[in-house]
Design a protein around this nucleic acid. Sequence first.
RNA 1: GGCCCCUUCGUCUAAUCGGUUAGGACACCAGCCUUUCAAGCUGGCAGCAGGGGUUCGAAUCCCCUAGGGGUCACCA
Length: 489
Amino acid sequence: MSDVRVRFAPSPTGELHIGGARTALFNWLYAQKTGGKFILRIDDTDRERSSPDHLEAIYRALTWLGLDWDEGPDQPASYGPYVQSERLSIYTEAAQKLLQEGKAYYCFCSVEELAEQKKIVRESGQAPRYRGTCRNLPPAQQEEKKLTCQGHVIRLLTPEEGETVVEDVIRGWVTFDNANLDDLILIRSDGLPTYNFASVVDDSLMKITHVIRAEEHLSNTPRQQFIARQLGFRLPVYAHVPMILAPDHSKLSKRHGATSVQEYKEMGIVPSALLNYLALLGWSPGEDREILPLEEIVQLFSLERITKNPAIYDQQKLTWMNGHYLRTMELEELLQEALPFFQAAGVISANPTEEERLYLQAVLRIMRDRIKVLGEAVEATDYFFREDYAFDPEGVKKQFQQNKETGKILTRVSRVLQGLEAFEETAVHDALAGVAVELEVSQGKVNVPLRLALTGRTRGPELLDILLVLGKDRSVARIEKTLERFDLG
RNA sequence: GGCCCCUUCGUCUAAUCGGUUAGGACACCAGCCUUUCAAGCUGGCAGCAGGGGUUCGAAUCCCCUAGGGGUCACCA
């Protein structure tokens, strides 16, 4: 057990999306690898956008992925509470301390004033920084303003000279000029802390040793370091992981298709595949391998091997990988993963009988090579669950209408199958071969129309497998029904 | 716009201290297998952003340019 403590701190303002999931994964992996603790903290200081529903969604997504946390809102330990909105007094206290030490000050500027100033500064081509109108207000005037002004915020007194160096495991030393920093707001007028402040306070109080987060936070880090220093906190180790971009190089958003973990789940991506794919986005084991079970990723993982450059996510590779997992996982596991899809479609009952489970398992066994996501499975196997399956018009035209021999062949197949005592692989195979020989036609002339009669389709699993899964009675019945329906007798 | 980060096949990436026919994977193409479709196997296509240096030698080190991304909120 090491003293490594990492954290994933989402804000409940939306579904957990792929980028957040990867950040969570990297943190989790690092904790696993080092024997440290993975902490889930909820950064809900944005009152407007945070919602309980989103919080639930985040829990669900992380749980589904199997990224379990050692400490969090529902796993209280000595560093709680783990929800920022329940820690307000802690931030207020920290801010008061800075105020008393002269490291922060009250600012009474209104939002409108600020916007105006910003506009002017921007037009002059400068970086818009807060210029500190309220920086040096004498105490008396402060007290007066407190009474007369609408509201006030607490700002950090930030140095205008010198530079701040951020040490990042992935990027090395990054230097920022303090002149570009402004007096950022610590406590908003509604009394809630801002992200930068709350985050620093909590990371320190929660004894976070490594801050692993998205690169978009790199530019905020000098500010955060300064806050930490003013508060007398030790700095954590930073690791800013590259962003995940959409195929058009822009920031990933809804218009790029599925981006939330929930959506992937619904389309039938399995957790193992998503985790494997995500791990490879911005990290590589250093050897020529792509398929890596989680346990191995944990063993091979290191922050140093995380890439510097942003990655564009590739849906095709994800689905390829998912397909690979689908056809190599244990059949029982595949059944577990697939069950909800079939239940949702109403073809398997909510509490499946052993018979139903075995049947679905048999269907999955012969279909798994042909699907990439579980969402396709129901449609692809529909004829195993209903007798009124649709017939492919092209196939019907070619096999049933244009081919005059089909009726004779299928009739014969039906008779021969009916006559079988043991409806098993070799017997059925030999029976079909026998029909071809007997009628002096190629095996294809027998098999192609037979497949169409049994499934309504021209493509699918091995014919023999279909026959065996369907069983003798249903197979024969389907052939007979087809002969009748298309008037082939 | 200021600041920061990044730049190897279309995409994800590998290449310990500079010396490789620049490797793998997805996608794509072809062949094999096969009564279908897949899967699988084999092979192919395809890359060091551009320009200067340093060096016997540079994808690798330095500089410049270009491009992409991030950030500059009383969002996180």
